[in-house]
Design a protein around this nucleic acid. Structure first.
Lengths: 345, 345
DNA sequence: CTGAAAGCGCTTACAG
DNA sequence: CTGAAAGCGCTTACAG
């Protein structure tokens, strides 16, 4: 809340040294390898403190060519899964003294492309992107530039780039094991028609599991279009139920919310009439009449690892070194997957 | 996705003019009042386009002393009310070519103070703040600086500053009228113990209404502490019910979510056993067994007006001109306020 | 161990 | 209508 902004010049004058020295000290280049007399450094720091010095980011970034900002483009920042990751990213970035810009592609490739341009324009030092359906080419082009890049939640096949992903196949297997333990065989998967690596891996896990248990003939994957989900949902769930489905697995939290809404409308009681397992949590489930069995992703770790990778990428000259981190899912058992229990209230 | 960043120098060289002219043209200072030959301007724009020129924000901001960024500090960016406003702010700010930094105070004054410092540090041109409990002094000090400031959602009494607020008294009256129309007299308000202007105005509206209708003796305001709401909620709702309360009004969406959760736990059916009206919407209500009657705030307008005010404040020299905008609430009637109806399913 | 100086890309008063 | 030049605050290679 200062009036006149203190500059290194002010500090240099007051401390009786050159601005170069102030700059050195302010950048912590004091340790063994550096020069600067310990006494001088102490004095400079004292003056800086006294004048409440705050470095001018614009000047710093103009001179160094680094902005100490990173861009993060998710598919929808209002989705609790991404909102939670966003807060974690921000926290971890803050530790490294980075500022984060967020954007939402809304699963739209041209929006994604535009956001990338906006971010590059702002001069971000690195970019974290959740690729959307149809964005392969855009991401490939981006990966060819020298801008550090980390993909989050979903990946692009055959592309040499850093990733932080969930073990989605394992996640699907966990969901399936839980239902199969309860005696379900007629298990159907509600998924998206979009081509996304995480969705594909969840579908793969589902199929593997159905086949391994000899339920292949009961298998059904419903692939919904991203827009206007509710009508499609009522239709596909109706189809499933008429086929005597015993359980539905929803591949994302949005699908689960829409699915439970549809079941409500259809007067289908969970888990009495059908068992349900979802992916991720959402505040929306808090008021549902039964607790939702779901796959829990390690949100904090997603946020943490992404920042570690992008900071590493920014600081290394060699852009060809890519790291892929695969995180472990967890099953949270609620009542929605327990067959033959009563309603909670 | 460029390799070499184009600068005005590149453009000047290629177009055969000075960098000053390029700068002028790039800043749209072409109209009547300005100089620059129309032909020259056209040529410069063409070259800029061809070289895919993107201005260097750091240089621009260093030179102009303006960062074209604004800071927005809400109480909790993960609360859907603020998250929605945030997206609107971002959209409107983008039109003015402003970038927005967000932060959450978590209703904590020292966090708020720290965030203000961080934002000032980043060199924001203006600040939008949702004041939290106990932040009067901090906000007052901030208002004394020359930094443009707009308060959002809540205000500070006797402080000359711009505001965008809801007509909270009217909102409370709307909620009350709806319940009273249904024949409710024993209406209780669930509120916070924090001192916040919006909450205070809602309480005021509630009290006015109870007295005006002669229900003063049935009036009860429950003021909960911000932390560990659920236990308090079960206790106060229990008290209300033992007093034969006919309706509960929840002063915020968080209180409504917690309140409905508590009623579920207590096996109290809405609206059969008690009517309910809430403030704001939330995805959490989507899966509730009945639709929630609630006060709807004009979210889009909040986001819009806030940006208009802060941009106006940034562009005017005279910091003493303050504007307060009071927005109108709307009642959305669901089934939760209808006494004697059956459950939806 | 320390200082003088160049220069990052831009804006803008000034001179013509 | 146009250009030369100063300067925003900082970093860093260079000279001492």
């Amino acid at each position: 809340m200062a009036v006149h902004k203190t500059t290194i010049k002010d500090i240099a004058n007051k401390a009786g040294v050159s601005i170069a020295l102030v700059s050195f000290v302010m950048n912590n280049k004091i340790g063994r390898n550096y020069r600067v007399n310990a006494e001088t450094a102490k004095k400079i720091l004292a003056v800086a403190e006294e004048l409440n010095y705050q470095p001018n980011n614009a000047a710093r970034s103009l001179r160094s060519g680094r902005s100490r900002t990173i861009g993060v483009i998710v598919s929808d920042i209002s989705n609790p899964f991404f909102a939670d990751i966003a807060r974690r990213i921000e926290d971890n970035a803050y530790k490294y003294n980075y500022t984060v810009f967020f954007g939402s592609s809304d699963e739209n490739t041209s929006k994604l492309e535009n956001l990338i341009d906006v971010m590059v324009n702002k001069g971000v030092d690195g970019l974290v992107v959740v690729p959307c359906h149809g964005s392969e080419e855009v991401i490939r082009k981006l990966a060819e530039t020298s801008l550090p890049l980390v993909l989050l939640d979903r990946t692009i096949s055959d592309l040499d780039v850093s990733n932080v992903l969930l073990n989605n196949k394992k996640a699907a297997l966990l969901a399936m094991d839980c239902l199969i333990r309860q005696g379900c065989r007629r298990i159907e998967l509600i998924s998206y028609s979009m081509s996304l690596s995480n969705i594909a891996d969840r579908e793969y896990g589902y199929q593997i599991s159905m086949k391994a248990h000899g339920f292949g003939e009961y298998g059904h994957i419903h692939r919904l279009r991203f827009k206007d989900i509710s009508d499609q949902m009522i239709r596909v769930l109706g189809e499933g139920l008429s086929r005597e489905a015993e359980a539905f697995v929803f591949a994302t939290n949005t699908l689960a919310v829409e699915g439970l809404k549809a079941l409500n409308k259809m007067n289908v009681i969970v888990p009495r009439d059908v068992a349900v397992v979802g992916f991720d949590d959402s505040e929306a489930f808090d008021l549902y009449y039964t607790t939702l069995t779901h796959i829990k992703q390690p949100i904090e770790q997603f946020g943490y690892e992404v920042v570690e990778l992008i900071v590493k990428a920014i600081n290394q000259k060699d852009r060809s070194q890519c790291t892929t981190i695969v995180l472990n899912p967890e099953l949270v058992e609620g009542n929605s997957s327990c067959r033959h229990v009563k309603r909670l209230f």
